[in-house]
């Protein structure tokens, strides 16, 4: 019996991504190395934050990807709900750990960046707190995928969770803003990239952002391939078991 894929879509996806993956991955690596080296070695210090501003080259791209990964999962979940393309559901599953790592990087770099400024290892700054909550959403999503055996059921449940979670994540963002601003604490130093609009900072930042985006795409392509194959294997194993 020839190696038959159940759907043309997964086969096309794997074929296309096999072609594209080396290029995307290679380009990601180039952008990351160039951007990080440029940012680390060849940019001046910020007059207010000193050398710690160099953390921006990790913190901002990671934070952007943390959000964008979740948005991609949201879109993929919607596509699954409406059009039932398995590749879409599996792509969302594949993206989640990448998004979680991005969130973790944003949190760690954010905390380390703030430490010399605030004097403590962690502050409940609204932005950092929102990312912490986002991490919890990622973990819950990943855990739900892992807990359900049936592939279709898992895809359905996790896509609804992603939808509902997105609404609550947005709600939490505003709640946290209210929660911290409302307590009249001293204005927290903004880790915003708006502070550093000068070209000399901005260009390497763009390169790093590009690198992170490309890395995300490469990892999702790779991991979705793996998920497709894993699903295929489960089907074949079940078929084998039934003789």
């Amino acid at each position: 019996m020839a190696s038959l894929w159940e759907y043309a879509n997964p086969r096309k996806f794997i074929a296309t991504s096999d072609l594209v993956l080396p290029w995307v991955g290679g380009l990601a690596l180039v952008c990351l190395v160039v951007g990080l080296v440029w940012g680390f070695f060849f940019t001046p210090e910020d007059y207010r934050q000193g050398a710690s501003v160099k953390i921006i080259y990790l913190h901002v791209p990671a934070a952007l990807m943390a959000i964008n990964a979740w948005l991609m999962m949201l879109v993929a979940s919607l596509v699954w709900i409406v059009r039932r393309h398995h590749v879409s559901a599996l792509a969302a599953r594949a993206a989640a750990p990448v998004g979680a790592v991005m969130t973790l990087i944003a949190l760690v770099t954010g905390a380390l960046w703030g430490q010399p400024i605030w004097g403590t290892w962690w502050v409940w700054d609204p932005r950092l707190t929102s990312f912490l909550i986002l991490l919890l959403f990622y973990l819950g999503y990943i855990a739900l995928w892992a807990a359900i055996e049936n592939d279709d059921t898992a895809a359905d449940l996790t896509s609804v969770l992603c939808l509902v979670g997105s609404v609550f994540a947005l709600l939490s963002r505003y709640a946290v803003l209210f929660w911290n601003q409302g307590l009249h604490q001293g204005a927290s130093l903004s880790l915003d990239k708006e502070e550093n609009v000068a070209d000399v900072f901005y260009l390497p930042l763009l390169v790093c952002i590009a690198g992170f985006v490309l890395l995300f795409v490469a990892l999702v392509l790779l991991r979705t391939q793996t998920e497709i194959r894993a699903r295929r294997m489960r089907v074949l194993l079940a078929r084998e078991r039934m003789g």
């Binding site: 050398a51 710690s52 760690v108 770099t109």
Partner: peptide, 18 residues
């Protein structure tokens, strides 16, 4: 580069992230 008092924060960030 001269990292001054931020050496731990910056190197730590880069190290952990990478």
């Amino acid at each position: 580069p001269e990292l001054g008092k931020y050496v731990f924060a910056v190197l730590g960030s880069y190290g952990i992230s990478v």
